[in-house]
């Protein structure tokens, strides 16, 4: 009996938590940041109005930003100055020093669709495989990937979006992946 009630309680608690999370995109006047006394608040776009139109995710802004871009739900500008060079690089890197977790696959393509090379190189990452002592503690402290992930890009609770290559099935060589593979 004791065993059952404990489990029931746990299930109900988790269920309540999930239900509570359904309330997404708070209105600006209730978000705890905007001053509801500010009359100009009426002129600002509400998150729900903009974000509910985009492909849904379960975390962050509840938006799959890469899909939104790829499938042209949004068409954000790449540059303002006509002379700015826009580079998109299609190159995956596999990182193997992940303990027992699946290997990390870092795709340059979606990152360079949004960012310029100089945003990461060489301020955050040296342009050399294995030259960056990336670890989860540093990331959780806002370094390396954590400069954006956990702040403005999908949060660090989504382990397997980065740790996406199972050790058991990967037979190639870590580092830069050639397109032939």
């Amino acid at each position: 009996m004791k065993f059952k009630s404990r489990h029931l309680l746990f299930i109900v608690a988790v269920w309540s938590a999930l239900q509570a999370q359904e309330v997404i995109w708070k209105s600006l006047s209730e978000d705890g940041l905007h001053d509801p006394e500010n009359p100009a608040i009426e002129l600002l776009q509400q998150p729900a109005e903009a974000l509910s139109q985009l492909p849904p995710d379960t975390v962050g802004n509840r938006v799959l930003w890469n899909r939104a871009l790829r499938e042209q739900y949004i068409q954000p500008r790449t540059n303002i100055y006509p002379e700015t060079k826009i580079e998109v690089i299609d190159m995956d890197i596999i990182m193997e020093k992940t303990g027992e977790l699946p290997l990390v696959l870092f795709p340059h393509r979606p990152h360079t669709e949004w960012l310029d090379c100089t945003n990461c190189h060489d301020k955050i990452f040296v342009r050399k495989v294995d030259a960056n002592p990336v670890n989860m503690f540093a990331i959780l402290s806002g370094q390396y990937c954590g400069q954006c992930h956990g702040a403005v890009a999908f949060p660090l609770t989504e382990c397997n979006r980065c740790h996406s290559v199972p050790r058991s099935t990967f037979t190639g060589k870590p580092g830069v992946q050639s397109r032939a593979n």
């Binding site: 001053d35 790449t78 100055y81 700015t84 403005v152």
Partner: peptide, 23 residues
């Protein structure tokens, strides 16, 4: 009042590189 910058609003209209590189 402090500034509230809605990053999510801006990325719908501009890629990161516009503000974090050009600007």
């Amino acid at each position: 009042r402090p500034v509230i910058f809605p990053h999510w609003f801006h990325r719908i209209r501009f890629r990161c590189k516009v503000c974090h590189n050009e600007l």
